[in-house]
């Protein structure tokens, strides 16, 4: 019945960009090393898992671009400074990680409600992009050896796994609530009228 309209896609992309921003500016979990360790990465992977590769990627890009002028990166410092700093690699990795996570989850929409599967997709995406580009940039900007940079980065593994557990719990719940989000050809609908079953 209702078509999947481009305006709904735009609203979802913008809505999740705002959600990542809120995740990033909610109080941080303090760790001392200063690399982002907030709910930001949770928001990024969740966006991929819920919206799929294309909308997920665009949503994270929108968040990053808006962050150039709005203080919505974790830590709350003014946006673009992060690109000049040691954390740029993490930011650049975010849309790629969201896209990969979304691609893996959306490959078969029935998988979108499987906790273990979504958890694995999130973790995999985060290791392929976040934990590679992040420390590589750290090494380059802070003039550290690769070994030093990667061992700094490894401090985030436990937190990352915990965040991925929560991410997968929530993404699967959202896909159960809105089964047509990940369905390839079925239309989106917002009407509140399930009404009668067809004979």
């Amino acid at each position: 019945m209702t078509r999947r309209t481009p305006t709904t896609d735009v609203a979802l992309i913008a809505g999740f960009a705002a959600l990542i921003a809120v995740c990033a500016i909610l109080p941080d979990i303090k760790t001392g090393v200063g690399v982002p360790y907030s709910l930001q990465t949770f928001g990024v992977l969740l966006t991929g898992a819920v919206l799929g590769p294309v909308r997920g990627f665009l949503s994270v890009v929108l968040y990053l671009v808006a962050g150039l002028v709005l203080p919505i990166y974790s830590g709350g410092a003014s946006g673009i400074s992060h690109y000049s700093g040691v954390t740029a690699g993490y930011l650049v990795a975010f849309p790629l990680a969201a896209a990969l996570c979304g691609y893996l989850v959306y490959r078969n929409h029935r998988n979108a409600t499987q906790f273990t599967l979504v958890f694995t997709c999130g973790l995999l995406s985060s290791f392929v992009f976040v934990h590679t580009l992040g420390p590589l940039n750290l090494a380059w900007r802070a003039d550290l050896s690769l070994k030093e940079a990667f061992s700094f980065d490894a401090a985030y593994f436990p937190g990352d796994i915990a965040k991925n557990v929560v991410m997968a719990l929530i993404a699967t719940a959202v896909h159960r609530a809105f089964p047509d989000l990940a369905a390839r050809r079925s239309p989106a609908t917002t009407t509140d009228e399930p009404a009668t079953q067809s004979a």
Partner: peptide
Amino acid sequence: VIRVVAHARATG
């Protein structure tokens, strides 16, 4: 998150 999705759809 569910309310974010629902709101986005209503907005769309």
